[in-house]
């Protein structure tokens, strides 16, 4: 919201202050509060997926344990570490923005992007393996070993798996977009200790993506 021209009614504003805010403190607080409310709706959006997981697991406990064996714990763990690392680099990027160091912001954003792409690459490897052997959601499910031993709807686990990781992956993709935007703005030297809430909000978003994964990983991969 920072591109609107200031100086509408008398006062001299810095270029990044929108005309309807009285001062930067108000603008920053509003931006951050708005972001938190956005994260709130993200959490409730994911709540539906977690509820779907919980109820299907409740109905088919045996299937859940059996089907989860088909996931690759190592891949999942590596991906967790990749995402945690990108979360750290993002936090450091925000810190650099707080200090007004645009160069470092861009560098940390680049590091975060590397993590995000790494996550997607590993996810891609996992997906392509599953697609190859027929561990697919819903009616596409075609994995003989499980359908022979387990008639309790084994496809449901993979429905839930693909919906959860898919929606999460979509968030990663969106994250890549906004982090890239922040990186470009940092290269343009947009940020200063007074004006960094865009970096901070993107950071908050990225940490939430991380936060969701922190729960997805054990629920899908680890709980035997």
């Amino acid at each position: 919201m920072s591109t609107a021209a200031g100086a509408d009614h008398g006062h001299a504003h810095p270029w990044y202050q929108a005309h309807h805010f009285k001062n930067m403190e108000q603008q920053n607080a509003a931006n951050k509060f708005g972001m938190w409310l956005f994260l709130v709706q993200e959490l409730l959006f994911f709540a539906g997926l977690f509820m779907a997981y919980a109820s299907m697991r409740f109905f088919y406990p045996g299937t859940w344990l059996e089907a989860a064996e088909q996931l690759d714990k190592v891949m999942g763990a590596v991906n967790t570490i990749v995402l945690l690392t990108s979360s750290l680099t993002m936090a450091l990027g925000v810190r650099a923005a707080q200090l007004g160091n645009n160069g470092q912001v861009a560098a940390w954003c680049a590091a975060t992007l590397a993590g995000a792409y790494g996550f997607l690459v590993i996810k891609y490897l996992e997906y392509s393996h599953k697609i190859h052997v027929g561990l697919l959601p819903g009616k596409w499910f075609d994995f003989k070993e499980l359908t022979q031993t387990n008639t309790d709807a084994p496809q449901l686990f993979f429905s839930v798996y693909f919906m959860m990781t898919g929606v999460h992956g979509l968030h990663v993709v969106i994250g890549i977009g906004v982090i890239f935007w922040i990186m470009l703005r940092a290269l343009r030297k947009d940020f200063s200790p007074e004006n960094y809430s865009a970096v901070e909000n993107v950071g908050l978003y990225w940490h939430l993506v991380d936060l969701i994964w922190i729960f997805l990983f054990p629920l899908l991969y680890l709980v035997r």
């Binding site: 979360s87 750290l88 993002m90 936090a91 950071g203 908050l204 940490h207 939430l208 991380d210 936060l211 922190i214 729960f215 990983f217 054990p218 629920l219 680890l222 709980v223």
Partner: peptide
């Protein structure tokens, strides 16, 4: 698993966020 995840989430929330 959930307890560990909650501790991790708290760490991310309190310091990273």
């Amino acid at each position: 698993a959930m307890l560990v995840a909650m501790v991790k989430a708290t760490l991310v929330g309190a310091w990273f966020m």
